[in-house]
Nucleic acid binder design. Sequence first.
DNA 1: CGCGCTGTTGAAACTTGTCAAAGTTTGTGG
DNA 2: CCACAAACTTTGACAAGTTTCAACAGCGCG
Lengths: 247, 247
Amino acid sequence: MPKDAATARLAFEIVKTACSNCNLRELCLPIGLAPEELKKLDELVSTRRRLKRGDYLYRAGQVFESIYAVRSGFFKTDVLIEDGRDQVTGFQMTGELLGLDGISSEIHTCNAIALEDSEVCAIPFSHLEGLSRQIHTLQHHFHKVMSREIVRDHGVMMLLGTMRAEERLAAFLLNLSQRFKARGYSPAEFNLRMSRDEIGSYLGLKLETVSRAFSHFQEEKLLAVHQRKIRILNTEGLKKLMTHQRG
Amino acid sequence: MPKDAATARLAFEIVKTACSNCNLRELCLPIGLAPEELKKLDELVSTRRRLKRGDYLYRAGQVFESIYAVRSGFFKTDVLIEDGRDQVTGFQMTGELLGLDGISSEIHTCNAIALEDSEVCAIPFSHLEGLSRQIHTLQHHFHKVMSREIVRDHGVMMLLGTMRAEERLAAFLLNLSQRFKARGYSPAEFNLRMSRDEIGSYLGLKLETVSRAFSHFQEEKLLAVHQRKIRILNTEGLKKLMTHQRG
DNA sequence: CGCGCTGTTGAAACTTGTCAAAGTTTGTGG
DNA sequence: CCACAAACTTTGACAAGTTTCAACAGCGCG
């Protein structure tokens, strides 16, 4: 590549990285910032990183320095314990943040793995704290994001603690559906990026149980399932199933 | 009460409320603050509140204004869903913070209930954000506290998703033991403040299952149990049980 | 002293996990 | 571009763990 073409390309990359140009503004950190504040944020988001399917964004045990905003693609996070058990703690899609768990001990406590080719913005955390001290709105928004993560986790605890297999899967699918919808995709038809095993791990079920639940949902005409392609045929039915009292 | 006695009492209360005099400094927000910063924090922690056993500190749906630091006593938080199911999402003891879940939507998403007579410091959240912009250390510490809550929740998800009944109870007891120890109490002997039903709700089990697990632990000479009074006889045994591979 | 709440224990029912086999899709190298 | 291997999914039969239902015991409180 000729030298000036390379330079032009670099400039282009920087433009592409800028929060002020990002079409995820409404989903990500920049919510509600004034134009001049957005410029400051642009400087903050220094690096972008591309990952191929299967790549680790970070691993448990690594030193924590940045949080990451998913620009495109799909991730999972999982925790491992010594005795070999592991669990998927979350799936992250466009506009969602990764790495908040690392703040407490300055070491990542889980693995973050790309489930498809993806791109993230790295946000050095100390810079974010610095800018938060200057921009009230950014500070408040960041606190909300962390708090939302806590609320989400409580929802998962509820799911794992009180729901049975089919209720869990229904809740999971409805949640995905909603998140696709919020990103402008069809809420009724989408591709799962994760395996039955990964869904099971997230929902506290074995993969066979997940598979059986899918089959049963098909029999009940709640879903059309072809591999990882899902079409929701009866949203209300799923909701009803999800909130159906145990017993 | 004579007027000046009342005044003296008021002054005394204020002194008692001050973070700079609080013997929980090492557990709570003031960690690592310089003396002049501590003074600013004192102004922040405006109110103290006493609660009797069974009182609600806040309820799901109420407007969020403050977070609370437990000064003494013991709390549980729980979430309810429409269909009647509920789950205990956590137990909070001295020095721990309550209310972080309310930041995201400015409405509390769970109930916080005193399990014994308790006292809390109310920290108006907008003031905390203001002071965080001035005091770097406080900001960073607060972020760590929120992140730690996320990590804790991941631990509970792990417990609910991958452990069986007795492993869960062992993990729960070891966690309590550790927290009592950190507060200068015996790690081996303590009173549970919660019922079997509340433990079960937290662990995603029925109260009968919890009761059976306690009985079994006694048979195995891991514990001595008398009502809610617990003595741990074999910590290593509990740890081994907790990390024992499923199957 | 008895009532109510909490906790314990037993037996049966139910849900999910385990193991095994076979079908399907995806990816790779020839 | 095909063939084969590897990974993933589905399904069945059986086992294990947990819940449900029921009865009863213990403690604290009025």
